[in-house]
Design a protein around this nucleic acid. Structure first.
Lengths: 241, 241
DNA sequence: CCCAAACGTGTCACGCTGTGACACTTGTCG
DNA sequence: CGACAAGTGTCACAGCGTGACACGTTTGGG
């Protein structure tokens, strides 16, 4: 689970610049301070999830979350920008995993197909608890999004903030330049929209699917008939090897 | 402009229940009270837009808005559920107009095409001040959405709340049942996503378009190549007359 | 014409979120 | 060990949003 937090793994040193050898002591489990901080953070997340599940999102105050871990509410806000932010952390993990899965799809799959297979596989992992994902938390978030507009809203916003990254990935796969070609933008927009709609359909019971992954899969399959642009590999067989 | 606020016009009496004849005195410009309330509301909207444009969204407090109209901040919240809500009012008008325009598109146009033409025509009206729309406010909202995440977020949320309605309209045009056919849902999701992406592209300057309507048009045109389901009229020539 | 119910509003009080400033403790490194 | 940095608590505060109650005005009816 932790490895998904590893900040996309290739950031930090702009390619071509080797880390100064003296600073290689930066192993993740460095000082006691760092470890303590990590423990506090996780305790806060735990506490938040427990209370949210127990009393609902709005009914839970930041002070309660902090008190349960025996820190001040001020400290809570040093770890999270807002009450909603606690939940977004988890979504970041999912998104990171999905990016990896997407990148790993065979190059001859069209984008929407690849996106569907990647996201469905990750979601299933979340639902089943595979991979180190906690299915309890996944379910909790789902429930919170359905019951609390504030949570749903911040999830929408958060998703939109991922837009640029998604666009870049799609453009890469398609082998086009997102500055001149609008298709990657459209794909990212569309997928994001479908994601949230799947959530809503599930919440309102307007779809016979039980699991989120099933609802999403169905929507994306529908979409596939239309907007399914071929990947670069399929479009230009020149680079096929 | 006011007629767009007319609450979709067919709500109020569940079909088959005639209004009690004695209550037909409900002309919109009824009592003095009603008129005064309307004036206060508009004054608040005016005040809010002026201050937002002048000092930005977050920097403007509800108290300032209310003070400028000489009412208490408590009263502000009797008119609007939140600070963001003032802006959403305007978006409702646009959405209403767009629904009308969409419904008025020729029956042989595929959904995305119809959606594109309808929304672009309304947006152009907003931009040009046709139709009673105030282009100044339109521009103001655009700027606020780009600069303030809170505004953008609530717009996202608001858009999602319109989802069900949009789905219904699309399903109607396609002549299918949205319970069994997922396509209308996908269309609604997709269009909503593209809308917000157009906004974002425009804000980040990632598109050469100057006007929002141009950016949206380009994205929807791109989309059209793919997901463009035929309308019911085109699909089943049985009803062609 | 006047009275009473309904309605809009102001005022007061409050809880919660989120932030800034400053002091204090604890870990870290030379 | 001693200086410095990082994390935390405390206090103060601004702003959003809501509940309760009192006061004035509108409205409609006897």
């Amino acid at each position: 689970m932790k490895e998904l937090l590893a900040e996309s793994s290739n950031v930090g040193y702009p390619a071509g610049m080797e880390a100064t050898p003296a600073v290689q002591a930066c192993i993740p489990t460095a000082g006691r301070r760092e470890r303590k901080k990590q423990r506090t953070r996780e305790a806060l997340v735990d506490s938040a999830f427990r209370l949210f599940a127990e009393k609902g999102f709005e009914a839970t105050t930041v002070e309660e979350i902090a008190d349960a871990v025996d820190v001040s509410s001020r400290t809570f806000f040093r770890y999270f920008a807002s009450k909603e932010d606690v939940l977004l952390t988890f979504q970041d993990e999912q998104f990171g995993a999905m990016k990896e899965a997407f990148a790993a799809r065979p190059a001859d799959e069209p984008v929407i197909t690849a996106l569907r297979r990647a996201s469905v596989s990750i979601l299933r992992a979340c639902e089943d608890g595979a991979f180190g994902f906690d299915p309890e938390r996944f379910g909790c978030i789902r429930q919170l999004m359905e019951s609390s507009p504030a949570v749903f809203g911040s999830s929408l916003e958060h998703g939109q903030r991922k837009h640029a990254e998604m666009t870049r990935l799609v453009a890469e796969r398609m082998g086009v330049d997102p500055v001149t070609d609008m298709r990657p933008h459209v794909v990212a927009a569309v997928v994001n929209g479908v994601f949230h709609t799947a959530f809503e359909l599930l919440g309102s019971g307007a779809v016979r699917a039980e699991r989120f992954s099933d609802a999403l899969s169905e929507l994306l399959l529908t979409l596939e008939g239309g907007i399914n642009f071929p990947a670069a590999a399929a479009a230009s067989p020149a680079s096929a090897d």
